[in-house]
């Protein structure tokens, strides 16, 4: 592998030592470790802590103007080769902050981005939040959400199986990173376009074509 890959790790954990952030980092680390084990270059893991930019996210929502630190966080995701998206479970869903961040992205901005969804909760009874809330959101954004996600209830932090689930998810994500999109190309999914921030000025139709489109 030539280019160094990058993994964006988005966490909506709120406290200093949030278990959500702990889980998100662990999945990112597991993916990185799996890449290294497979002989690849250690990927760049970019931690995006939404708590730090929560005010900016709200300002962007209210004014449509994205403050620099929020733009940097969005760019970290937009230019990454893979994504770990982690949220605490609030009222049977992702947290408002988590949703608000992803609301800022343009339609299709995460198209085919290999993604592992992760969530924490106070009780194992919420474990389907991955499938009822996170997956539909990521599907809407057209991310390539892996079948394996990680849910951690409070009690799981004393259970060795959590680490093995984290490692399985990390290995799955590493598999998507490995040798570019070869894994993808082998399947029916289209190869993911280069994750460059889209230049909307490069694709403005010539005005004659715009005129032709309204002629009848």
């Amino acid at each position: 592998m030539t280019d160094r890959r990058s993994i964006a790790v988005v966490t909506a954990g709120l406290s200093e030592d949030a278990s959500t952030t702990r889980l998100a980092r662990a999945v990112g680390q597991a993916a990185s470790d799996a890449v290294v084990r497979g002989g690849g270059q250690e990927p760049e893991v970019r931690l995006v802590t939404l708590r730090d930019i929560a005010h900016g996210i709200t300002d962007a929502m209210l004014t449509g103007m994205v403050p620099e630190p929020v733009q940097a966080a969005m760019d970290a995701v937009l230019t990454a080769d893979a994504l770990v998206a982690a949220t605490p479970t609030y009222k049977a869903s992702y947290s408002g902050l988590f949703k608000e961040f992803f609301d800022l992205f343009d339609e299709g901005a995460l198209e085919n981005l290999p993604t592992v969804v992760a969530a924490t909760g106070g009780s194992p009874r919420h474990s389907l939040v991955l499938d009822t809330a996170l997956r539909p959101l990521m599907s809407y954004l057209k991310a390539l959400t892996l079948p394996i996600g990680v849910y951690a209830a409070t009690e799981d932090w004393a259970d060795a199986s959590l680490q093995s689930r984290i490692e399985r998810a990390g290995a799955a994500l590493a598999g998507m990173l490995d040798a570019g999109n070869r894994g993808l190309a082998a399947s029916s999914a289209p190869a993911r376009p280069a994750r460059e921030v889209r230049d909307e000025f490069a694709t403005v139709p010539d005005f004659a074509d715009l005129l032709a489109s309204v002629q009848r």
Binding site: T58, D59, L62, T63, M65, P67
Partner: peptide, 16 residues
């Protein structure tokens, strides 16, 4: 309207 209850006056002046 539009930007009230959002960013601070100082940050809005800086950004716009």
């Amino acid at each position: 309207p539009v930007y009230g209850h959002g960013p601070s006056l100082e940050s809005f002046m800086e950004q716009t």
